[in-house]
Design a protein around this nucleic acid. Structure first.
Length: 271
DNA sequence: TTAATCACCTGAGGGC
DNA sequence: TGCCCTCAGGTGATTA
């Protein structure tokens, strides 16, 4: 399940293979993704030069002189480099064939992913223009969280998973960051002090930074752009460990549903 | 404006 | 072995 570190790992993995490549063809086998792939996408992209491979939140942006291809991996999506004409599996929905003879292949069993086109500034696209800061950017800090949380009665876990607060904090890393900061996931966002938000911001940066450095998680079917799995799962302290012992205090980790999401925490370490 | 819920989708895993 | 059911989850849309 790609979260921000997985998306960044994918970006770094595919970038060397597609940067400065010209798009020779686009093969759309399954256009029904989260939103339908535009009918004219192959025609628009054909012949374009890929100028940059960027990321904003969990969106990957392939910029060409004509516009930008906006991609989202959804829940189960992946991008990898294959030889053009490589054997096609059931969920290989889109191939972007390159002048090098290779292809960027989008695979997504659950089809929660997306592939959209904009000729405008992609950061002004309706999906991107209202997003919060990047978690690893300087502008994201405890003051930012504290300021936005005033008057918010929602649970802090849902607050930090809201893309308007900060982007890229999915369920796994929200659980981990709250554990690291010692904050109970159900605590109302407005009832957390500035000092504790500073700890939480540092925890988010630490958890996401470490995950990126190690290539994302190995949960389910995630593999990087090079087809190799990530290695972060071994370091998860709470996510997926409900009923097991807390690595810090030895208490049994508690698992609940919060906002329809699996939430694991330590009742002793997190207040 | 905020919070809660729904919808999308399919593979994995458990129970029978 | 096969069938059925539940769960997993990112995020926009809808509803209250």
């Amino acid at each position: 399940m790609p979260e921000l570190p997985e998306v960044e790992t994918t970006r770094r993995g595919v970038e060397p293979h597609i940067l400065k490549q010209r798009i020779r063809d686009v093969i759309v086998r399954q256009p029904q993704l989260r939103w339908p792939v535009p009918d004219d996408l192959p025609g628009v992209l054909k012949g374009s030069l890929i100028q940059s491979v960027e990321r904003r939140a969990k969106y990957l942006l392939l910029k060409t002189p004509q516009g930008t291809l906006i991609m989202h991996l959804g829940m189960s999506g992946s991008l990898r480099i294959v030889a053009a004409g490589a054997t096609v599996e059931t969920h290989d929905h889109i191939d972007i064939c390159l002048s090098s003879g290779k292809a960027l292949r989008f695979t997504d069993p659950r089809r929660f992913g997306a592939m959209l086109w904009t000729a405008q500034d992609p950061l002004q696209h309706k999906l991107l223009r209202n997003l919060g800061p990047e978690p690893l950017a300087e502008e994201f800090d405890g003051e930012h969280l504290y300021r936005l949380s005033r008057g918010r009665s929602a649970a802090v876990k849902q607050f930090i998973m809201d893309g308007h607060t900060v982007v890229g904090v999915g369920n796994i890393y929200a659980n981990e960051a709250l554990y690291m900061a010692g904050i109970h996931p159900k605590r109302a966002a407005r009832r957390i002090s500035l000092a504790r938000y500073r700890q939480l911001a540092m925890a988010i940066k630490s958890v996401l930074g470490d995950a990126i450095a190690q290539g994302g998680t190995t949960l389910r079917d995630f593999v990087g752009g090079d087809g190799k799995p990530g290695y972060f799962k071994q370091q998860l302290n709470v996510y997926g460990r409900g009923g097991e012992r807390c690595r810090d205090c030895g208490m049994v980790l508690h698992e609940i549903r919060l906002g329809q999401r699996s939430t694991v925490y330590c009742r002793h370490c997190q207040r």
